[in-house]
Nucleic acid binder design. Structure first.
Lengths: 214, 214
DNA sequence: ACCTGCATGTTACTTGCGGTAACACGCAGT
DNA sequence: ACTGCGTGTTACCGCAAGTAACATGCAGGT
């Protein structure tokens, strides 16, 4: 039957695709976001056109690659979010999970955050990276959904939850990016500081002597 | 005298430099961050090598361009931060100033946030765009300084203030980016929602029926 | 056995960009 | 008139994305 035949072929193609993605992964892990198609093909032991047959263009490959890592990270975050503990504990666990991930694989993380590197970006027929960070968006939406599901925010809760989701994710991201570059403190301290911020310590803080305060 | 002569030349060079930057500005405003050196040169009515004589490489041009806008935006933010009003009012004014800026010139804003486009990045002697967003970093540092200057945060206030600075800026950025793409609400509403987040409404919110809440 | 279809792989090319070398003009000062 | 120097050009290199055209291995039908 052609169904079994096609299934066989499809499975083989899927396997190949996964192998290629893993090779690409290794290269990105080594070279960061500016990994070239040639380098990826070489790592996989093949040549460029095959990559293009499998993924269309560089944007396709990057999207597939990004989705793998994004899915994995989102799973971890969901686990931290779903842990049986107090709200503050879970917020801290979520922040810590994210920071641990970017700490473990900075190159991959940079790739996920800034995949628009493509270069001249000819985009003949397709618009790769029209806005830059699919991971940020997905995390923001996800967190927004969770917040809306579980918190009682009164009217406009949907809007508010989504804004907060994107806002919190952005806070996490920017602080993590800065922290990763300068390492001004331990991860634990960073987590506590950010959680404190979310817990309203900014509003609660007293003014410093000499001025009305921020 | 050679002093006056050199001053003349230097002034002429500076004028030229400013003209070139304005031409580059126009192109970036039109084409976004992927504006090519050729296009910028053409807009300025000259050819590539002159750009390279003035700015060294693309990174140099982008850095100069970024600094102009970054300085301007930071000035606006400082003004909002320094207004004579309650803390909450000023936080909202600052958020609104930033959002108004990115709303007015999305292309420029995208350029400032993702200038790492460099491409193959030969980097013969220099490392352009090693981390991606100088504007974010500068805003984060600036805000951190302001917070530390004016708020009494107890011990470790320096660390805490810097973390908060980068965190708040990141929140502003991510939420703004998302908002700019989807326009899910008015700017005013967005500002209020973010200020509410910073004011601890996340911690204060009640659980929804059926679960322990986020 | 033979031909056909198809996926897989290759080499060799085009296009477009960042960046540079070498050459040409204009205009001070001696 | 000759020299230095800043301004401008054309023509080129290297490299990366993406593509066309050709080769090969392996099903399955006749």
């Amino acid at each position: 039957m052609d169904t079994t035949e096609r299934t066989d072929q499809q499975r083989s193609a899927d396997r190949r695709r996964r192998e290629l993605l893993e090779a690409a992964d290794r290269v990105v892990l080594r070279d960061g976001p500016q990994a070239s198609m040639n380098a990826i093909a070489a790592e996989a032991g093949i040549t460029k056109p095959i990559l293009y047959r499998h993924f269309g263009d560089k944007g396709g490959l990057y999207a597939a690659l990004a989705q793998r890592h994004t899915d994995a990270l989102l799973d971890s975050l969901r686990a931290a979010l779903d842990a049986p503990a107090e709200r503050r504990e879970r917020v801290e666990a979520t922040l810590d999970t994210y920071l641990a991930a970017i700490e473990a694989r900075p190159q991959v993380y940079r790739f996920l955050m800034h995949p628009a590197e493509g270069g001249q970006a000819n985009e003949p027929g397709f618009d790769i990276g029209k806005h830059s960070a699919p991971l940020l968006r997905r995390m923001g939406e996800e967190l927004g959904t969770v917040i809306e599901e579980r918190l009682d925010l009164g009217p406009d809760s949907r809007q508010l939850a989504r804004v907060w989701g994107h806002g919190i994710v952005g806070m996490m991201h920017a602080a993590g990016d800065w922290w990763l570059g300068e390492r001004p403190c331990s991860r634990r301290e960073l987590v506590r500081s950010l959680a404190d911020l979310l817990w309203g310590r900014l509003a609660a803080a007293g003014d410093r002597i000499g001025g009305p305060g921020f």
